[in-house]
């Protein structure tokens, strides 16, 4: 018997199913005739629980799969492997968190510039290129959506005050 990535995922899925099945008991029953609102999600969650259990058993029986102690899972490798993805996550969260203040135009330019620079490097030449790329691309996209497709994109408090 071994513990690997799949074991942890299966346990997580089982916990998720438990929480959601528990939450399905709170779904209101308006008393109409026909299928209750909780019926279909309960079926899906029960099947998901069964499949998660199958995955758990298979992962524990398996001898070859993704052992947790392998060298790929040491903290330095994990950091390097997910460095760029983590930068994207972080930048996107910042972009969304400040969207109300910066708006789509300024926020978008800063997001693209920040991401380009963090992923591409901090040399002067690159920074100049990144700023040009971010201003032009977001400017074009913003114009297409605002003037072409008549979408009212978030203006942001900064532009509103200005």
């Amino acid at each position: 018997m071994s513990i690997n990535k799949d074991t942890i995922v299966a346990i997580f899925l089982l916990l998720f199913c438990g929480i959601m099945i528990n939450s399905s008991f709170d779904i209101e029953d308006p008393g109409y005739q026909g299928m209750k609102a909780s019926f279909w999600p309960t079926i899906v969650l029960c099947l998901l629980s069964v499949m998660s259990l199958v995955m758990l058993i298979k992962s524990m029986v398996s001898t070859t799969d993704n052992n947790l102690n392998s060298e790929n899972t040491n903290s330095q490798n994990i950091f390097l492997k997910f460095k760029n993805a983590s930068i994207c996550f972080l930048m996107f969260i910042l972009f969304l968190a400040f969207l109300d203040y910066l708006g789509m135009l300024i926020g978008g330019v800063l997001f693209v510039f920040g991401l380009l620079t963090l992923l591409g490097g901090f040399e002067i030449k690159k920074i100049i290129n990144h700023s040009i790329i971010s201003i032009i691309t977001i400017g074009i996209m913003w114009s297409i959506f605002t003037f072409g497709l008549k979408v009212i994109l978030p203006e942001g408090e900064i532009l509103r005050i200005w």
């Binding site: 996107f92 972009f95 789509m104 997001f111 693209v112 380009l116 992923l119 977001i138 994109l153």
Partner: peptide
Amino acid sequence: YVLASVILAYCAIGVF
């Protein structure tokens, strides 16, 4: 990385 950064921003605008 240039394409990915620009497209990520585009995804946000498009979804909005």
